[in-house]
């Protein structure tokens, strides 16, 4: 019998099963299901957004119907919640169990494998490929929270070194500027550079699926695994679809996590035929240009000083009425920190 685990006791039993299976229990999930045989919990698994996690089956029940039953329930619930594609992290030795459920391996990194259910990656690539061009191709991936002169400089430099530059804007909405605003500011900010194509990164580059700890800004072993997975998905699935042979990144003097991500790309991508090109950041009189500095200035309500950091297109938005709620949020944040 399959049941949603709502009570403290059910979840506690599941936790014990999950931990006995060598997985770590993580509190944040949308729902958890358990499979009972003769009153005993024999399998459990949870879903957080479009990610399945903590799937564990008692050894005696492995190889049977337990996993399929569990995943059916999780999948039904995910569909109801509007998710078409689902992801799962598992140990590489369990990847085949999920492939038997029609999950597809996106990348395996040694300790962890990432699989996807549903044709999300191919559908996304097919949509993007309409924009694809022949010739030497490069890529940059940016969150642009918001788009600054630093981003602009990196894009300009990269675009001058390739025939076509694909600029992927990180879709994951965990930043203060929402995705549609970030995307529009990037488009406006690079419109005059002919060989730049701005694309939506979907769930496949620096997303909650491929690299969730990016948004937590923690540098730990888990983050390192995710960076490598993210770089592997890029090198094996995305770059070949566009013919991308160079990935451009800005040097990262401040943030250890982004610095670590650059290092992970340098470890993984050259072996997959993608050269990693680091572009030195530009400096202004008051230091390095960064989006966090821009957010700080907005937080301190020093809009007049923004001109040095952002292009006119971004400045027009930041000082507009449309940006008032974001300005207010940043100012409240700054107030709270004082």
């Amino acid at each position: 019998m399959i049941a949603e685990l709502l009570s403290g006791r059910g979840v506690l039993e599941a936790r014990s099963l999950i931990e006995r299976s060598g997985l770590s229990f993580e509190a944040g999930f949308d729902e958890m299901f358990g499979l009972y045989e003769a009153g005993q919990l024999v399998a459990a698994g949870a879903r957080a957004g479009n990610i399945l996690k903590m799937l564990a089956v008692e050894p005696a029940y492995q190889g049977g119907a337990a996993l399929g039953e569990l995943v059916t329930s999780l999948l039904n619930r995910a569909r109801t919640a509007g998710h078409e594609s689902l992801f799962i992290y598992t140990k590489p030795e369990y990847a085949t169990s999920f492939e038997a459920l029609n999950f597809r391996l996106l990348a395996s990194q040694g300790k962890v494998a990432l699989l996807e259910y549903g044709g999300g990656l191919n559908a996304w690539l097919a949509g993007c490929r309409r924009a694809a061009q022949d010739g030497l191709a490069g890529a940059v991936v940016m969150n642009c929270n918001p788009f600054t002169n630093g981003h602009r400089y990196l894009v300009e430099t990269a675009a001058s070194l390739v025939d076509t530059l694909y600029l992927f804007v990180v879709r994951e909405d965990r930043s203060i500027f929402p995705f549609d605003v970030r995307f529009k500011l990037v488009e406006a900010g690079v419109r005059d550079i002919d060989n730049v194509i701005v694309l939506d990164s979907s769930s496949y580059i620096v997303s909650g699926a491929t690299f969730p700890t990016y948004f937590l800004k923690q540098d730990d072993p888990v983050a390192r695994i995710q960076m490598e997975l993210d770089a592997t998905v890029f090198g094996t699935r995305i770059a070949p679809a566009f013919g991308i042979t160079r990935r451009f990144v800005g040097t990262e003097p401040c943030c250890p996590l982004t610095g670590g991500y650059n290092e992970a790309m340098k470890r993984i991508l050259p072996g997959l035929g993608v050269e990693v090109v680091e572009v030195e950041r530009i400096q202004v009189s008051s230091g390095v240009i960064s989006a966090s500095r821009v957010r700080e200035l907005i937080g301190m309500n020093e809009l007049s000083r923004l001109e040095e950091f952002v292009p006119p297109t971004t400045l027009a938005y930041l000082t507009s009425d449309a940006a008032a709620p974001i300005r207010k949020k940043l100012q409240m944040k700054t107030g709270a920190n004082l």
Partner: peptide, 16 residues
């Protein structure tokens, strides 16, 4: 509208 039937069990299929 969206419709769905089936399971992910062996010898079965899920249709959407």
């Amino acid at each position: 509208k969206k419709g769905q039937a089936g399971t992910m069990q062996s010898s079965d299929l899920m249709v959407t």
